[in-house]
Design a binder for these strands. Sequence first.
RNA 1: CGGGGUGUAGCGCAGGUUGGUAGCGCACCUGUCUUGGGAACAGGGGGUCGAAGGUUCAAAUCCUUUCACCCCGACCA
Length: 571
Amino acid sequence: MRYSKFFIPTLREVPADAEVVSHQLMARAGMIKKLASGIYSYLPLGLIVIKKVEQIVRECMNEAGAIELTMPSIQPAELWEESGRWDFYGKELLRIKDRHNRDFCYGPTHEEVITDIVKSYITSYKALPINLYQIQTKFRDEVRPRFGLMRGREFVMKDAYSFDVDDAAANISYQKMYDAYCKVFERCGLKYKTVEADSGAIGGSFSHEFMVLADTGEDFVISCDSCDYSANVEKAPLKNDHVAFSGEMKAIEDVETPNAKTVSEVAKILNIPEGDILKTMVLDVDGKLVAICVKGTHDVNLAKVKNYFGASVVDLAGAGEVFDSMGSPAGSCGPVGAKIPVYGDFAITAMGNFSVGANVKGVHKINVNLGRDFEFEDMGDFRNAEIGDTCTACGGKYQITKGIEVGHIFKLGTKYSESMNAMFLDNNGKRKPFIMGCYGIGVTRVVASAIEQNHDESGIIWPVELAPFKISVLPLAMKDKDVVDAAEKIYMDLIDKGIEVLLDDRDERAGVKFKDAELTGIPLRVVIGKKTLAEGKIELRARTESEATEISFDGCIDTIVQKLEEIASKA
RNA sequence: CGGGGUGUAGCGCAGGUUGGUAGCGCACCUGUCUUGGGAACAGGGGGUCGAAGGUUCAAAUCCUUUCACCCCGACCA
């Protein structure tokens, strides 16, 4: 490609609304332009990179036996009503009406559509297993879109869906996707981790997330310092290894805590550590109110609560419900004398003479003790794991790192096939629901996270597989015929070799060409200058290197190609 | 949805309190000169000051309404 015939509108300054590096650099490198909050145009350079990722994904999917198709982005409400998600999915689902006032939505995911397709055509076990996928634009009306392509509302996603005859077969399909995903992210040159995850709103029995490790990530990844266990913080289990409190129990007392609403406020008023306070949360578990207690410094994990009760929806109770059930506002709730079932986190076992809300506004009880003053209905693992917690697998210590979720695979089971009546006949002629799995990769998010992981002060440093161009050829004197001729020759020769090259044929000063080549992150730079060329030499410099090496112009193509291979193999 | 902030040239910003002909840097156009790290000089083009309404002789500036965008939080009691 000739720069002068292409469109790469680079920006010298950082756009005011770009917060994270990937967003800033994509905007500055002329890859994307924002149209509305969370909605971006993909400019030519950005599109090339997106297509690179798509192609890698496509190759890995096909290799794993998945078959590509494309489903509509607009979906009728009826399908979503059938699966029960029209009411359940919430505001993230962008709902629209057509001219006949019929309800539609812009698809945030395609379980319904694919299930509808498969149930229409596949009626026999003989046609299974099958795995269908698409690469397509999705829309999720995020509460707070941010960070450019990292959390956009419109984004490109690869979604695959597998259908199997039974559980064992479904596990094989799942494993194939797991392996394929590893290949995808390795080829993209990303440092990533797979973690056990909670299946969340999509549902299903188990799932894994693929996390790109980066400080700007919005997810917390728990990993063990001595074994290879890792999980999303929502999932990571905790041991009940607490030694019961055995100190002297002091006399229980009521104390005034006016206006205190949070643990830290109570701690300040009572002049005690937050760890000596019991936090009581009133939750709505499938319509029933339940109180969950955790140590003041811990956080309740709703996913764990949900799993403990086998519930489908767990939410915080509203202020009114809290008052009606506990007799006080949320900030003064406690387990002593509570009229709803109270459950406690394991870690409370070790606490003694702690403080709890008195279920009277502005009053707390101090020197409360489990067993003497109240009992839990049951105790369990109800909190988020924290740094230093004990790994249940090996006894090592948990650590926390931040990650960007770029892939998520779910074993769905029969959630959709049952609700949508998607059945096949097995080898005994019996009707059975398909065992499903679904598998997503955020293509545009992969691009953003690749930049988060690979950049410096000057700009992007593309992993070779994702680079929009592998080599930039910079003739530094466009009015010098020798320089231009030499550059042209190198350019044409590299194209003949099938290499993606960008020839910067603009009549710009050297500095401008250098800056743009660095900003756009092209892995290898070939510089043709007047003086060096007069000595029969040109310069070569990898994007990751700080020094250029001079090579002889004669026979330079082989040297350049060799250098490129060297860079590619290092990744 | 709650709190905070910002909308002025393609981009980054000043001006606003004290109403009086809309400015700076970058980018863009013309010319000279330059050519290995975002050159210099000279000249030039480009704005319904987010939108609507109001106050006033006069509004980017004051008042009201509204829209958009950004940040923090959005369930942790």
